[in-house]
Amino acid sequence: MSAIVEIRGVEKRFGAIRALGPVNLSLQPGERLGLIGPNGSGKTTLINCLSGLFAANAGTIVFEGRDITQEPAHVRARMGIARSFQIPRPFTGMSVIENLLVPMDYLPIEAGAREGRAMEILSSVGLAGRRDAPAEALSQLELRKLELARALVIEPKVLVADEAMAGLSEGEINDVLALLMRLNERGVAIIMIEHIMHAVMRFSQRVVCLETGRIIAEGLPQAVAQDKHVQKVYFGERAGR
């Protein structure tokens, strides 16, 4: 099967500092990929390059066989690359449901069908009861759910969840995991960036570990977890806290 996303030699520099790369990574359609690495290792930067918020300084990104390196973020979103933000970025000044209508304005959905679609998605993340609440009034958990809901609206082929479970309780983590699993069953490829190890390990079919902008290990979750280098930079740091 050919990859849905191919990242080839992608680099991102901030001034003199190379925050990412060169990175080579491919994602299969419908795959569940875990992306781990210590703080500042470049996970979010990689996702920003993939979703188009950052222009990569080098390399190419291919989506469904098409070179999208030069495409702006909104075009990539409409092609089916969705992402949630590590720090929730709700559309304040709008209700919860209107937050979901923003992406719908750019999709070929009949006007009459929009609210129904939005409500379906809100129900699936457990926000149906908050449909008319102003975005400012949401709790941290609700904001994370809204992030996911807004990403789901575009019916993505690839979804990147950037620490969607940070700060959640065990029960809430299970809810989000179940939601992502259901999505995946419908064929959506998912990249999960997460510091909560047991969640990534349970969820992922394959895990990639970044350190200082480079991939240092890649493979089955158990194999990566046992990798010496990974344990040193990642679990070592974690254990040391």
Partner: peptide
Amino acid sequence: RASEPAAEACGVP
């Protein structure tokens, strides 16, 4: 106004 990156990620040009 709320967040330009989030708007872009939602398909807003």
